[in-house]
Write a protein that binds this DNA or RNA. Structure first.
Lengths: 332, 332
DNA sequence: ATGAAAGCGCTAACAT
DNA sequence: ATGTTAGCGCTTTCAT
């Protein structure tokens, strides 16, 4: 027996509540689950007893009996690929899950497919939210096999078995092109290694949007996959005096902004327009001509994902959905 | 294997394993828990059966019977106070916990004391790791009441009931002063609102270290709690031509660095020395004279916290410990 | 070294 | 509208 300061009082059971309320134990259960009508007076007595005893239903027993653990597994990526915003998602997901009576259990990417199988087979999780799936991810198969409802945050390939919530990256791509043209740019330089990361579906869809929209314009699209610190330098080199270049990156924004500020070369904005993601940087930099509203959308996306999850869990025969959230430019 | 589409196959139980291995069900349990000697041949037959069936013990049943859920609750702060590093801790904690057979369940700060009571009383968590406690935090009482073992990450007031793992912030304070003096600075400016956040114990201890060390030198310490973007400006204003000012901040580093780069005024470093936290910024900026190694220590701290937790859980009569990790300067 | 059997505290089917 | 009862799948005591 580990470290105990005084004998920890044994937690009260539904039996104790029943005794105190003068009802049968099953009635206590029915009050809690709401799975059958209870008279107002009985309900009140039971609820009083619950409050008086500080009763909380035992999770192990409930899970064992009902096969519902009240826990949603959240598959988190190995590392934070996106300048530390991961926590925004996770926090929002955890809070929204609690609002609906669920807890969030972390499943790290490192655990791989075996980890999924484990949380599913042991019954710790009754549903899964999946983040940052690769287009061909080994963890997808066990999730589908499990038959548990799942939501992917970030649209991967089509999984008709599960729901999807994501930003509409294709539309974002089109918006960026449109904006660059509006700002009279001749060239759009995409940094943050978009070329390499085609395996990530969001990047891939973003580029599709870019290419589709650019095809109808004179805009020249350049994929830059060199070091972030030299992005401004390279951009400047390929921009003749009379022209303007727009810069955009799904990540690595901070580094590029810093490089621009440090060299001081590009501050005037006459030859270069900056339209970057990362609204947390908006306050930092006067260099941003246009910033997509991403942070606030991340919270929105997280909450939508949880609500969709709850719908799948609670609605009988619910069918999976795809929800794409429209990007917007941050005003100001 | 053909069960992907139909009703999900019922998970095998220890009963099934026992039948296949030709032993009693309790023997299967003993093989799994290791709580009594098993002959090599029996163990092998059981393990084969387990592998063949893909058996995973039912978590609800195990928890109900043994009162050990295999789940550690992780109390995470409301928002990421520290430029997105929170995820480094959480990821490292989750991974290390898995290495020891535990899962991590998120408990958001938002849930407050009631949330702690809930996870404790329902039995979902058998232990708690607490992050970013205030010096007088309402959530501490229910944790102590629960009698469950806990580890606080970040040293709060003394809680003899629980273990503590943290960076030695007092030593960091002394190191910063020492370094500023070595670099022949006349003044140390601390930004990131250290004055206001005295309720956070790490900040408080850091300042103690600063003050103690500064008392023995000529160094003038200035607490700056104004806007981060104007920190360089203010620093410059209070630095006469013949003097040097050192800057340091536990957070808000990114903003200050950016402001310095953008104004361009301070790049030379003749009047100002930068010694900042956040080694992820080291590659960005040539402005940093000295960077404390924090990121790698964060992983270390997380792992230590989990290992300490496991010690409390597994060692009978284990007594809580305080572990302070020494800060170091990043080389180069 | 192994087996048999008694629950842990719930939910839900089957009573009334 | 409420009560009675049978397990869920384990861990663990008591046998042998």
């Amino acid at each position: 027996m580990g470290s105990s300061r005084g004998p920890r009082a044994k937690a009260p059971t539904s039996q104790d509540v029943a005794r105190l309320a003068g009802v049968s134990q099953s009635t206590v259960s029915y009050v809690l689950t709401g799975s059958r009508p209870i008279s107002a007076s009985t309900r009140e007595r039971v609820e009083d007893a619950i409050a008086k005893l500080g009763y909380h239903p035992n999770s192990g027993a409930r899970t064992l009996r009902s096969r519902r653990s009240g826990v949603i597994g959240l598959m988190v990526p190995e590392a934070d690929s996106d300048d530390g915003v991961l926590m925004v998602f996770i926090g929002a997901i955890a809070r929204e899950a609690r609002r609906h009576g669920y807890d969030i259990l972390l499943v790290t990417a490192q655990e791989g497919a075996a980890g999924i199988r484990r949380v599913v087979r042991t019954g710790v999780c009754e549903a899964l939210i999946l983040m940052e799936l690769d287009r061909f991810d080994e963890r997808v198969a066990p999730v589908i096999d499990s038959g548990l409802p799942f939501v992917t945050l970030g649209k991967p390939e089509e999984f008709p078995q599960g729901s999807v919530v994501d930003l509409d990256f294709e539309m974002l791509g089109r918006m960026v092109v449109e904006r660059a043209v509006e700002e009279e740019c001749d060239r759009l330089l995409l940094f943050g290694g978009p070329g390499r990361k085609r395996t990530r579906n969001d990047v891939s869809r973003f580029l599709t949007g870019i290419e589709d929209a650019a095809a109808e314009t004179e805009l020249e699209v350049v994929l830059d996959s060199g070091a972030l610190a030299e992005v401004p330098e390279r951009a400047l080199r390929l921009t003749p005096r009379s022209q303007r270049t727009a810069l955009f990156g799904l990540n690595g924004v901070r580094q590029v902004l810093f490089a621009m500020a440090a060299t001081g070369a590009l501050v005037d904005g006459t030859r270069m327009l900056i339209a970057l993601s990362g609204e947390d940087l908006a306050d930092i930099s006067p260099l941003l001509a246009a910033v997509p509203q991403l942070d606030s959308r991340r919270t929105e996306i997280s909450e939508l994902a949880v609500r969709e999850m709850v719908r799948l869990l609670r609605t009988d025969g619910a069918t999976p959905r795809i929800t794409l959230v429209e990007p917007r430019w941050l005003e100001g």
